[in-house]
Design a protein around this nucleic acid. Sequence first.
DNA 1: ACTTTAAGCACAATCGTTTGTGCATATTGT
DNA 2: ACAATATGCACAAACGATTGTGCTTAAAGT
Lengths: 357, 357
Amino acid sequence: MNKVRRVTLHTIAKQVGVSATTISRVLSGQAARYRISKSTEETVLQAAAELGYLPDQLARGLRIKRTHTIGLIIPDISNPFFSTLARNIEIEARKAGYSIILSDIQEETQLEVESTRLLQSRKVEGLIICPAGEQSEHLKAILRIELPMVIVDRHFPELECPYVVSDNYKGSFEAVSYFIENNHRIIAFIQGRLHTSVNNDRVRGYRDALKKHNIPFDEAFIVGDSFGERNGYVGAKMLLNRASRPTAIIAASNLISLGAMRAIYEEGLKIPDEISMISFDDQPYSDYLATPMTTVAQQTTEMGQIAFKLLMSQINLERPRDTEGVVLSTELKIRKSVKKLEPAFMKETKEETFIGA
Amino acid sequence: MNKVRRVTLHTIAKQVGVSATTISRVLSGQAARYRISKSTEETVLQAAAELGYLPDQLARGLRIKRTHTIGLIIPDISNPFFSTLARNIEIEARKAGYSIILSDIQEETQLEVESTRLLQSRKVEGLIICPAGEQSEHLKAILRIELPMVIVDRHFPELECPYVVSDNYKGSFEAVSYFIENNHRIIAFIQGRLHTSVNNDRVRGYRDALKKHNIPFDEAFIVGDSFGERNGYVGAKMLLNRASRPTAIIAASNLISLGAMRAIYEEGLKIPDEISMISFDDQPYSDYLATPMTTVAQQTTEMGQIAFKLLMSQINLERPRDTEGVVLSTELKIRKSVKKLEPAFMKETKEETFIGA
DNA sequence: ACTTTAAGCACAATCGTTTGTGCATATTGT
DNA sequence: ACAATATGCACAAACGATTGTGCTTAAAGT
């Protein structure tokens, strides 16, 4: 315990010989407004500096009903996507004089629910949430008490709340189209957590791209159920051991593609010679992988900045909740992980010989 | 602003028809101790649940002088090393009922100093700090006010404060020795931020490994001054364009090696054929790089857990500050980025021909 | 029947800041 | 010289929870 000698307004007051009120007013720059004399002001400032006074933000927050604190709820801070997001939110927050209480909910909605309550209890002025699951009851509860909130990365149509997401549909559509342009016809999708908007949109983009090019859709080529590495491994393993092996795989996250790569190499396959790949989430290392990975890059920096700004506008302007969301474009970063195949009829014969073997 | 209808102890008190005191005692499980009747207790519990009461942690903290909050100061949360560290600290903290205020100081000591003050102001019960720079005055100030603190990743000998670090000396020594065992003689080191214990220890390990094998030390083969990617790029560029090009490079961080790889590929070189490499900080993707990277792995998970536990022991036991630190062993994860060269005399001739070219 | 003990709860102070108001004293105006 | 205004600051309440103590009524003891 650090009860050495807490310096409060009264400590200074006693030393200077005025009341705590005066100290408070001087330190908050209200000296002039309350006609504190120049000389008193200087003495107070001096004393405060000498004593190393730091205002008690608990007491302050209790009194003025503002904490300059927001809550940040993240499924997994060790995931580079979320950590760069967090970083940019932090930087914006600092500029605005806000602190962040971080809550890593370990991809569990249960912890998410608990966290929202805890953060309310801690009197955050707002919440930035990257929801882990598909539930949104607890989020509705937050809307009800009119606590400012911004949803990031995912989106709930039933929720009247500002959000920032990537254009996952388009990103996915473009990626799959790129496969098709390179004459791929059997394209598998290792998806992430089901029933999330992120996943829905990406799957929809995938299906629509196939449909647009008249490629029959086969449910069997969508596998997986989480954004984690393990799911990528398992999903790829399954796909690679199918009778009709896909020529291309699109992975719904950076972690999934890492797992998929593990499976692919384990099976003795090469990217892109024997299997092509595209991964969501561009990473610094994407360029340096065994095969530089073609990725669907999201604007993580902007996502963080916008999220914070959307939150601030709710907090400051007391503006009626701006229910429309921001959707950020993605960029297909073409590298070397997609092979240009021979036109279709060639593939068919290859396929035949493989099955016949 | 969410002033919908704040539920306080008094709200419940009024509804139930007892005093706020009673509510407080019931909710904190002290009913029996203060002889609150069973029936009152139940009514209170019921009402609290109905109203969705959440205690105001500001008021609570102000009164009881505990916030169940700690401050976490990190140079760059988007760096995977720090983010996995943060994650494990968060998980431990949650178990213990603590929240974390995150402070990303963007590798700037100035922000670190400000953050320590701000966090004090917010009445955190302790601080876990990964210091950005070599200064430690502000940390001494924290020791002086007896605020519990743990230093992670780096270490200041002059600071009587518990710390958790990796055995950077040994990690570096082993890595360089491994180079030497593979007959490398011209080994360069791209170092990180100067005057930090991390860097000092790693450089020392490098020098001692050379010395042990009677390899002359040449100052010119230590380059760099930061743990960032750019420094890795610049450092590698310089090294690769030297008359006597090193056959091996050890990079002091994951970011440095990423930058170095960029430079190496840009120069049209291959790892490990033309240049061998070892990087500090093992990463999930280390296995999947163009050449799987041999790394010096740190025990990040344990580091986080231990850091939090060291902090808790200070907070709870009021134990006299346990000044000794914990040093965690590193592991050399051997992959494919180091080439076994011909014994020394061969290399010399190669070197000659290169220079003569 | 009268004192003693227990049961069941409320009062009021406190944590450190902030803020509306009010009270002296000093200065100015006439 | 006296009223009016300005100057410089202090008082006290409030934010919401906690806690030592004390008060009232009921039960128990003799």
